[in-house]
Design a protein around this nucleic acid. Structure first.
Lengths: 190, 190, 190, 190
DNA sequence: TATGAATGAGTCTTCATTCAT
DNA sequence: GATGAATGAAGACTCATTCAT
């Protein structure tokens, strides 16, 4: 039951965060939206900025879970990349701008390591895919999986954010295609 | 002469911005550092947040100028990419974190178009390089220059920021190399 | 209990307002005098200028209540006018200058209608007296009660304010007498 | 020539004062409107608040001059009152709200005596009219001319301001008529 | 006289956080 | 656990006034 309150708060925060920026939402807004009292917030979060990592973690977790699921039966790395891009676009759409807000929010608060800790499992997930791809001979040996995973994640994230911020859905397919091409050229054997 | 004051303010702001985040610096700090009065700030900037675009513009301008100069005698796109990466790392080092702070600052203030206006010239510069590379048969026809330029810029920026935030100079050469490989694979003919 | 805080603030504000002008008192002064925190002020008032109407309303309410009471057993309009003048002088003395400050405060903030809404009940009260006087044949039919009430209120208010601002109590009886004569000549049958 | 600058400033201030309140106009607004430099203001006025009395004096002077002129050939006090009311309405219309702003401006600045000094000549002018009316047997002996003059001025001023602030020109004739009746009943023999 | 860039004290308002109930 | 009234530090911004030119 007490978990309910926390969940309500996180949901409310996610919603507001996606609409406005981190600096533009007040604890007051969140609790109002969540339908709980001001003080309740501090029962579950040490401070306002402690909220961001939790949301980020939830987001990444969600993304990871969806992708794990969708990739379970997929074999070719090329297909995996397609799916990763597609799901990223979908998740990013519903959280419009939230990821980069999380990022800047964390960066601002000098909690870089916190951020990395949260991103860790996702990065590992991508690394494993690339590693497997290398083993299969599909992914180039030229690039270190750690760096490549990082660049791949950044590029996908940045592109999805950018595209969605533009609010012009018509260019989505083209940008997605470009991203696909770019990534595959960089990572896969010709 | 009155330009001096504005310059002083921008310099001070750049310095402080690189050290702390945008939300962590006060107008008061900036003017103190700049050696001008509180009111003087508002003589040259409509508000605190109006400062960011100006700094960003200056930064981009600087980057653009340096790269234009260094690339003037270079022919091969591959070499151009090397130089762009190198100079980006250098500029980014001296402005440690400033670019992404500018970005988040702008994103927070919903001034996306302002941000794009500022980035415009740099993006065009990169596009022209890629276009020329296509003409020379060095750059792949597979990718649209506009998208490619955007992705290239994002990737370089994100990587430089990330590497510099880690404050571990030893990994710079490796990351730089990885970035080079990644980009060239994506953009150039094999 | 929470009403207490608001009451404290209004009391403090009334006191300070009577001593200084609206533009000369700071929110800080008010809360210090009231013994509450800075933020508490904004819990009960949207802004500093939102305070004035509330005080004005309270003042008018007080004046109205006193006069209603004192006039309950009085029959002749002439006597009623005497009592209205007397009580106005008394109330005005204890709020020295406050009424006109309220007025200017409102006028400055372009909230004329707000001001009229507040004055409404008092004006109605005076109108009813004049109407009753007309029915009794004591008040002249020459003048419309609405206009007459307005003029009567203005004249009394202006005179009391003026007299009290002079801080020379010796002239009060004379001015009061003059006001009485003036008003009765204007309103009553000879 | 230097008088020109001062005149420009006063004109600009009158205009702005009539549109906004005293507290809402800045020296900057005035000088911009006047087309002079910021510093020029302080060449002619000790401070911002020193401007109000000058404007008030000019206004009163204007009113006085007009009325003196119009009354020069008039004999009956009743007619004089009509003319005074009419001209007051006219002048007040073009300075919509300015008089009361002057008043509150001065009251706020505790310069009551200054205000009275400025009003002095006008009050004397009205007193003389009433005195003459008494001599002619037209004005009642019941009321002291000093008090009566003051009340008459206040009432006219308050009424004109009120009517003009309402911006409903259709009620002007009725209110004017009511004022006329009220004043004549109060001051003249039946 | 005239200018207008520069000043900086002054104040409103916000909002994360606390704590008595 | 839950509440929400109360807190008060913090900071952006204003604007009358000055003064070097």
């Amino acid at each position: 039951m007490s978990q309910t309150k926390k969940t309500q708060i996180i949901s409310a925060a996610k919603q507001l965060l996606a609409e406005h920026g981190i600096e533009n939402i007040k604890v007051n807004d969140i609790v109002k939206q969540a339908g709980v009292a001001q003080g309740t917030f501090y029962l579950y979060f040490r401070s306002k900025s402690a909220l961001i990592p939790e949301i980020a973690a939830e987001l990444i977790g969600e993304l990871l879970q969806i992708q794990r699921e969708k990739l379970s039966q997929v074999v070719r790395t090329s297909d995996k990349i397609d799916i990763i891009i597609d799901t990223s676009f979908e998740v990013s759409r519903s959280y419009r701008g939230l990821l980069s807000l999380c990022y800047s929010g964390l960066a601002i608060n000098d909690e870089l390591s916190e951020w990395e800790r949260i991103y860790e499992p996702y990065k590992t997930f991508i690394e494993e895919i690339l590693e497997a791809g290398k083993a299969e001979g599909e992914v180039t040996q030229q690039i270190a999986t750690s760096s490549a995973a990082q660049m791949m994640i950044s590029l996908i994230e940045e592109t999805t954010e950018r595209v969605h911020l533009h609010e012009d859905e018509t260019e989505v397919p083209h940008e997605k295609e470009q991203l696909r091409t770019f990534l595959k050229r960089a990572l896969l054997h010709v």
